[in-house]
């Protein structure tokens, strides 16, 4: 964890209620895809935890959905604004577990952290398939970006407006063989992916957090290996330790 000031370079809508923010500054504490940052916003007591979509030395991007007054305030921020940020929070995904043909499964705003993961897996020569699911054609995030990385993309929409009609599990059925699974999305989706998953895997969870760095115990969940704090011991859990 590092506390640092990041400057907004860009903050633009990607689709209805979803924004992409690019922040410049010290990103050295970000060491794995699936980690998150915790942003201090004027007028709000708690910070806003948002997963990192991608990063390099000097910049990171986040993709967030406006779901309340806090994220609405984020959407109003302009380039040049400086955000007090805790970076490099959480454990992130482990790349060495992937095998040669990992399957990435994401739903809605759970898709962005998988982008940074796909980029790094592909850089290591892995053959990546991404199953990404959305409500409707208007909500699709990053499909072209995954393709540009060289990933095979299987797109699903709940209403069938684009791609396979149904959920990511319908997309998983089309994915063929894979060596490992990485996933992020709402909990009902994670549960369905867990049941459909034929390999080992890593699952990224979400919970309401107080601090985001392990002090308040607000976001604890039960696992087969004891209590874990989603913010500090997660947000990524091993498939084998999950208790639903």
């Amino acid at each position: 964890m590092k506390q640092t000031e990041l400057t907004i370079i860009e903050n633009l809508p990607l689709c209805t209620d979803v924004y992409r923010m690019v922040l410049a500054g010290d990103t050295s504490a970000v060491t794995a895809p699936g980690q998150f940052v915790n942003l201090k916003l004027d007028g709000f007591f708690l910070r806003r935890p948002i997963s990192v979509c991608d990063w390099d030395t000097g910049q990171l991007s986040i993709i967030y959905k406006v779901v309340g007054r806090g994220t609405a305030a984020m959407a109003r921020l302009r380039p040049g604004a400086v955000l007090d940020t805790l970076t490099g929070l959480g454990n992130g995904y482990d790349l060495p577990l992937s095998g040669n043909h990992p399957l990435l499964v994401g739903g809605g705003v759970g898709v962005p952290p998988l982008y940074g993961l796909a980029k790094r897996l592909i850089a290591q020569g892995k053959r990546v398939t991404a199953v990404i699911g959305f409500e409707h054609a208007d909500n699709i995030l990053l499909a072209d970006d995954f393709r540009a990385l060289g990933a095979s993309v299987i797109l699903t929409t709940a209403d069938g407006s684009v791609g396979i009609r149904g959920f990511v599990t319908n997309g998983m059925a089309e994915a063929g063989e894979y060596t490992y699974l990485y996933t992020c999305g709402p909990e009902p989706m994670l549960r369905a992916v867990y049941d459909a998953c034929r390999t080992s895997g890593q699952f990224s969870f979400e919970e309401r957090m107080g601090c985001g760095f392990g002090a308040c115990m607000g976001c604890t969940c039960r696992t087969k290996y004891g209590n874990k704090r989603i913010c500090k011991d997660g947000p990524v859990l091993q498939k084998e330790e999950i208790v639903w």
């Binding site: 919970e207 309401r208 607000g218 604890t220 039960r222």
Partner: peptide
């Protein structure tokens, strides 16, 4: 373990746990 989650909420003057 404590109580079930969610167990954190916010208000204008701070938080509830």
């Amino acid at each position: 373990f404590g109580n079930p989650t969610p167990r954190i909420a916010e208000y204008a003057g701070g938080l509830l746990n």
